[in-house]
Write a protein that binds this DNA or RNA. Structure first.
Length: 266
DNA sequence: AATGGGACCTGCGCGC
DNA sequence: TGCGCGCAGGTCCCAT
């Protein structure tokens, strides 16, 4: 599911709901989701703690209990969080003192929960590139300069630029009218500037509309995001391009499906 | 450095 | 109807 806009949506909603609340029980229905420490220590370590803060770094969600105690959540593809009553499908359930629950939902069981003393030392976090919002257009131009990787594959490389996933990479390239197959270094200065601008605008739009519920992703209350009906090319193979009406194509790049308009994107 | 493959998991939709 | 296959928002790891 979740790219930067979806995780940001969860972070904002979660902040409103759980700050200051105390966790009194945890039910682990799928121990595999708990990557560290053991399921038992994970439980013992969190029960009794109050939520101090909710943070997001790229696509990673972090719940702070203390200066040296953090719950690190990576939703991977199908993870999402549901706040309210306990859900039978939940992989892990956090029970608050008021009786409300935070359900960790994850159909494909690819997500990860970790309880740690810190998060900044996690390899994945340490190697993250800057988020688009923390870059200047010049930073972005420097980033793509000299790289022969296909531009769409580059946008998905979290060590170079963090937070973009397969939906918004395709959408940004469409808005910028750039063919996703092009080597990064083939982009002219003006094209790179345009792409950077569209990355920012698509992420802002997606945050504004609370993300895309293309498949399993739902917001904290179980509602759908409003962004999916605004997607221009993602998952629209064969349908008319919203600009020129010619059919959208789909190819594989870096092993990921990639939709684009061969007529508009050059 | 870049590319391609497979792995991790489950469930859906499609074509036969 | 039923079954097998391909595919899915992410990341890691290996080989070339």
């Amino acid at each position: 599911m979740p790219e930067l806009p979806e995780v940001e949506t969860i972070k904002r909603d979660l902040t409103k709901k759980i700050i200051g609340q105390k966790i009194v029980d945890i039910k682990i229905n799928k121990p595999k989701i708990i990557k560290e420490p053991s399921a038992d220590l994970f439980k013992k370590g969190i029960i009794g703690e109050k939520v101090k803060e909710v943070k997001r770094i790229a696509k990673v969600l972090i719940i702070k209990f203390r200066e040296d105690k953090f719950l690190v959540i990576h939703l991977r593809i199908s993870g999402w969080l549901l706040y309210g009553k306990e859900d039978p499908r939940a992989r892990v359930v956090f029970v608050f003192s008021g009786g409300k629950c935070l359900n960790y939902m994850d159909q494909r069981v690819l997500g990860e929960l970790k309880l740690r003393k810190s998060y900044s030392d996690l390899k994945f976090i340490k190697t993250l590139g800057p988020e688009p919002f923390d870059m200047s257009p010049e930073d972005f131009k420097k980033l793509i300069k000299g790289r022969s990787t296909k531009i769409k594959v580059l946008l998905l490389d979290q060590t170079l630029i963090a937070g973009i996933g397969n939906i918004y990479a395709q959408e940004a390239l469409f808005l910028a009218k750039i063919d996703p197959k092009r080597p990064a270094k083939s982009l002219k200065e003006s094209e790179a500037g345009r792409l950077y601008e569209k990355i920012i605008s698509i992420l802002k739009e997606a945050i504004k509309y609370k993300g895309s519920s293309v498949d399993s992703y739902r917001d904290l209350s179980g509602g759908r995001g409003g962004m999916e009906q605004r997607l221009r090319v993602y998952s629209r193979k064969g349908k008319p391009c919203p600009v020129c009406n010619k059919p959208i194509s789909k190819i594989a790049l870096g092993g990921r499906g990639t939709c684009f308009c061969p007529n508009c994107q050059r």
